[in-house]
Design a protein around this nucleic acid. Structure first.
Length: 637
RNA sequence: GCCCUUGUAGCUCAGUAGGUAGAGCACUUCCUUGGUAAGGAAGAGGUCACCGGUUCGAAUCCGGUCAAGGGCUCCA
């Protein structure tokens, strides 16, 4: 395959969010004990906890596992810790390191372990110990002691705290986190900490992180006039500025071309719909919490007649609408696969605390399509969609992703609210998707509990500049919604009988909001020419050349190139600076020489060499570059 | 929704023993017509997020609300 993704992350997502850093995980054999950093981070977590308990006596502890860039530790604190306390905390940690406390292991029988944890006043640790015993059948639990500090823990640790690199950690932030990751539980205070093997690495990583923040779409987006989020409109409801709208439309144009080639047909559907549709589709039972509250219309009836009452919802998904388009005609197996595509606006009522820039919004426009097909066609169609993903990602230079086969979780206690109850169909469709993926040769990881309510899916996971992993694209198989008890979609088979089609829901370019957020960070705001809001800035040396510049501008616009003229009375240096900070791909400098010869001097973003050439040649070159969606530079360079 | 932090001009930020606001950039006007990362001068611009309290007096202290950011849960 053309793309070489970095491949599956070694550690499945769920382990990160359910940090069983203690005995159970070691017993299950999942922990990477080979990594010496693991022991360092794990040990530092104990050192942090010791320092926190010194500073806030009476606090109790949750989990404290190593993570990607360091570790964290959860506490129920007797008094708050704020960033102002970080220096003191760090200095106490350094004192503990200096003291060279030995890490001593001791294994206790479960009853003794429980007694000890109760005596320590650690109810959360005790709860977990009970679970390890009851659910995982452990009979002995490990304890590590260093100096005055004791923690239930399976290790591994360094020999003594003196072995920990003193300058290679840094407290990063405090955050809230629910005990065991469930909102029904106590909210704890989580202290995040960077930690690396040595000071140089730490400083480099922290610096890398800080530089990354400069590419943050929340910073660059408004700076480059791509979008604003205006409280007057509502939270999570971005306004797209002219520049951002150009990017949306270029992506849509690309999608339309690609989908046309693969024989999709475009449709258009309204933003609001009657409640009954969402009962039919199953969204209201499964998805209500993510939907905006309904609009209820009431009209008094004609004299004596009954009152008319209608309930509408903003649509959270486009699928039910597309399904009704499928159902609007009698369909034959000869019509399948039927591919309906729409860049569809949807509204989801996300918790306000979850909103973040363009990444998590309440109104979004989705690169949506639904493919209605038979079971025999699933594999081909699924693979075709995966190939489309690949073409997009290659075109955009996106390589740092992994694919996740998102499965249902039969053991989820809320399973009946989250997933359609049909174990046999889940098993069958999961196998179908798994087989298709194996056939594609694309690497993927499997994660339970990430499926849609109606079926398994392949999610494409990317990391934002702030280190957060998000799903940007998705390719889902739906066995449930077309069924008799929901939308009841049917086609006539060769046997003359009616059958339910399968549906593939796919959004390789995700939503404009999230995908463009990624692209802003990916390109650091310096978009390839075909995507750039302004492609060419014409820069006259002085006002005397404004007319020549205007003629070129007109020519470029006639050729559908997005150009403008810098008519300010600033000096050339200033105009150049302005063009560079706006990350415009091409600057044409024109003065005496250029006007005389009908030429332009071309200065490209990120390239030092300049070239003078006849304007006609430049026009042909830029046109070809745009048409070919050429990427001249590595993203973000 | 929950935990923590933040909220001064369009942007980046000053303004802590509480005494009714300041800089740079951007913007407007004028001078300058300048060949590759900031030419000069003047001007305009703020209900210090909002509401309430303490005080003779609040950007500053206290409470609440709203919004944003970092997390958790949830998700494209």
């Amino acid at each position: 395959m053309a793309l070489a993704p970095l491949g599956p992350r070694p550690q499945p997502e769920r382990l990160r969010n359910d940090p069983m850093n203690d005995s159970a995980l070691a017993e299950l054999g999942n922990k990477d004990n080979a990594d010496p950093l693991y022991a360092v981070r794990h040990s530092l977590a104990h050192v942090l906890a010791q320092a926190v308990l010194e500073m806030r006596p009476g606090s109790t502890r949750g989990f404290g596992p190593p993570i990607d860039n360091g570790f964290y530790y959860d506490f129920v604190l007797s008094a708050p810790i704020t960033p102002e306390d970080f220096p003191e905390l760090e200095s106490r940690m350094k004192d503990i390191i200096k003291a060279g406390q030995r890490f001593e292991r001791e294994d206790l029988e479960v009853p003794a372990a429980l007694a000890r944890l109760e005596a320590m006043g650690e109810p959360y640790k005790a709860e977990y110990a009970r679970e390890l015993a009851d659910r995982h059948g452990l009979t002995r639990l490990g304890f590590y002691t260093n100096g005055p500090f004791v923690d239930m823990c399976d290790g591994p640790h360094v020999g003594h705290t003196g072995k920990l690199p003193r300058g290679a950690f840094k407290i990063r932030s405090v955050a809230g986190a629910y005990w065991r990751g469930s909102e029904a539980n106590q909210m704890m205070t989580r202290i995040y900490c960077w930690a690396y093997a040595d000071k140089v690495t730490l400083e480099a990583e922290v610096k890398r992180h800080e530089e990354g923040l400069r590419r943050d779409h929340k910073k660059l987006g408004p700076q480059l006039d791509l979008y604003v989020i205006d409280p007057a409109i509502g939270k999570g409801l971005p306004l797209w500025m002219p520049n951002g709208t150009v990017i949306r439309e270029e992506l849509e144009k690309l999608a339309k071309e690609m989908e046309f080639q693969d024989a999709y047909q475009r449709v258009a559907t309204p933003h609001v719909t009657l409640e009954s549709l969402y009962y039919m589709s199953g969204h209201l039972p499964y998805y209500k919490a993510s939907m905006f509250p309904p609009m209820v219309l009431e009209e008094a009836g004609e004299a004596g007649g009954e009152a008319v009452r209608e309930t509408y919802y903003l649509k959270p998904m486009n699928c039910p609408h597309h399904h009704r388009i499928f159902a609007a005609r009698k369909r034959s197996y000869r019509d399948l696969p039927l591919r309906l595509a729409e860049y569809g606006q949807v509204y989801r009522f996300e918790d306000h605390g979850a909103l973040s820039g363009l990444l998590r919004v309440r109104g979004m426009c989705m690169n949506d399509a639904h493919i209605y097909c038979t079971e025999a066609q699933i594999e081909d169609e699924f693979l075709k969609v995966m190939r489309m993903h690949e073409r997009y990602f290659e075109m955009l230079g996106i390589a740092d992703f992994y694919m996740r086969l998102s499965l249902w979780d039969p053991d989820d206690p809320k399973g009946r609210e989250k997933y359609v109850d049909n174990p046999a169909a889940w098993e069958r469709t999961q196998n179908l998707v798994r087989q298709a993926m194996q056939k594609s040769g694309l690497p993927f990881v499997e994660v339970k509990g990430e499926a849609a309510f109606y079926g398994p899916k392949i999610d494409i996971q990317l990391k934002t500049v702030t280190g957060r992993e998000e799903t940007f694209s998705t390719n889902q198989l739906d066995f449930a919604v077309p069924g008799a008890d929901r939308m009841n979609l049917v086609y006539t088979g060769p046997d003359g009988a009616e059958h339910h089609p399968y549906v593939i829901h796919r959004a390789p370019l995700g939503t404009h909001e999230r995908f463009i957020a990624y692209l802003i960070e990916h390109f650091g705001g310096a978009f390839p020419t075909w995507l750039a809001p302004l492609q060419v800035r014409i820069l006259p040396i002085s006002e005397r050349f404004n007319d020549y510049a205007a003629r070129l501008d007109g020519e470029l616009r006639r050729a559908q190139v997005r150009a403008d003229v810098d008519r300010s009375d600033d000096k050339v240096g200033k105009k150049i600076r302005e063009a560079l900070t706006s990350k415009i791909p091409v600057v044409l400098v024109v003065g005496e020489q250029e006007q005389e010869g009908g030429t332009v001097t071309v200065r490209r973003y990120g390239e030092d060499a300049q070239a003078s050439m006849p304007f006609s040649r430049f026009l042909a070159e830029i046109r070809a570059e745009i048409d070919g969606r050429v990427m001249r530079r590595a993203p973000g360079a």
